[in-house]
Write a protein that binds this DNA or RNA. Structure first.
Lengths: 185, 185
DNA sequence: CTGTAATTTCAGAAATTACTGAAAATTCAG
DNA sequence: CTGAATTTTCAGTAATTTCTGAAATTACAG
């Protein structure tokens, strides 16, 4: 039989449900996903509903949402008509998906909204000032986005190495620093 | 008189209210902050309430929340008994504060929860697998946190330069890459 | 002090979001 | 096809979150 909720696993699921809800993700959907991530085997919707004590329909909607985020894979087990769901086995894979989806849904629209507003000629000193701030926001967001895009290119192996190197990331940034100060622009 | 809501400014405020609510920030609080950021002058709570059409008490609570996030400064204008609020003039400053606060409120507790759970000896294969995933999550979050900590050290000027250099950030990461592949660990 | 201006608190109303059960739709073995 | 197993939809309810107005508190000029 599939995964059981020991107190330890339960605690983890509750925590991530809570965290999810602080980041705009429905608490029960967060719990469902935590369960999937912690489970060594794919789970059926029924099993999720039973384990977490949610209605079957709630689980159905939650899974639909997780699919729209591309966070779960759907698979059929041979000789079983039920559908089974699983999360990627690689945490970094999950994080990358989250970042990517969040960009598509929130960052990109924000950037294009800002660009749209910045097309207008300022009609007052207030608007002129406001546009200044909008430009700054736009540029900052765009830069941070570029940055994370680069980081997302790293595969898990590469990341693993970085992980082991620990915070010598500092050194990397020092290098960048040095390079920056000599670059002429 | 203080800032007026032209359609352009209004649109920006509405957008950020909407975005805020997707990231766990109350819509009206998001709007209040957008207004403060876009305003060249500090604003009184009354002015915010009038401009955005919120009740005075809602504004009071919103400002209290923004203060708890350390996102606004409170100041008194000479010869006026009212309190005036303003956002930092520097967008990067704002972003850094947001990151820092979010870390304090969500990331740190998550890391220590995970560490706590990882202290327990696994009592079943399920728990053993679950702990493996928890360890991976912990390490990934810790690493990304270290990373952003480094980035947060950059001051606005430094960032400005990076901004102007555009996406040659790619080059920086290539350098890191090269360095990584030669490093022996 | 006193009185007025300003701010905060908080109980309840309003709005939003989440969840459920029943019914509809889909899937697929036979 | 048929019908049982499974999943989805959705209208209504429950729960949560947000917002307000009235009252309480605080701040301070005179």
């Amino acid at each position: 039989m599939s995964i059981t909720l020991t107190p330890m696993i339960q605690a983890c699921i509750l925590h991530f449900g809570e965290m999810g809800s602080r980041w705009g993700i429905n608490r029960t959907v967060g719990q469902m996903y935590a369960l999937l991530v912690l489970s060594p085997e794919p789970l059926s919707a029924d099993h999720i509903a039973d384990t977490l004590g949610f209605s079957r329909s709630n689980v159905s909607m939650g899974l639909k949402e997780l699919q729209s985020w591309e966070l779960v894979r759907l698979q059929h087990l041979p000789g079983d008509r039920k559908e089974y769901y699983s999360a990627p086995a690689d945490v970094w894979e999950i994080a990358k998906t989250l970042i990517e989806q969040r960009r598509k849904r929130e960052i990109d629209p924000t950037l294009s909204t800002l660009r749209g507003l910045l097309m207008n000629k300022p009609a007052s000193p207030d608007e002129q000032y406001a546009q200044q701030r909008m430009q700054e926001m736009h540029d900052l967001i765009e830069m941070l986005t570029l940055w994370t895009t680069e980081i997302q290119r790293l595969d898990s192996d590469r990341l693993q190495k970085l992980l082991k190197l620990g915070n010598s990331i500092g050194k990397v940034l020092d290098m960048k620093d040095k390079w920056l100060s000599t670059a002429k622009h």
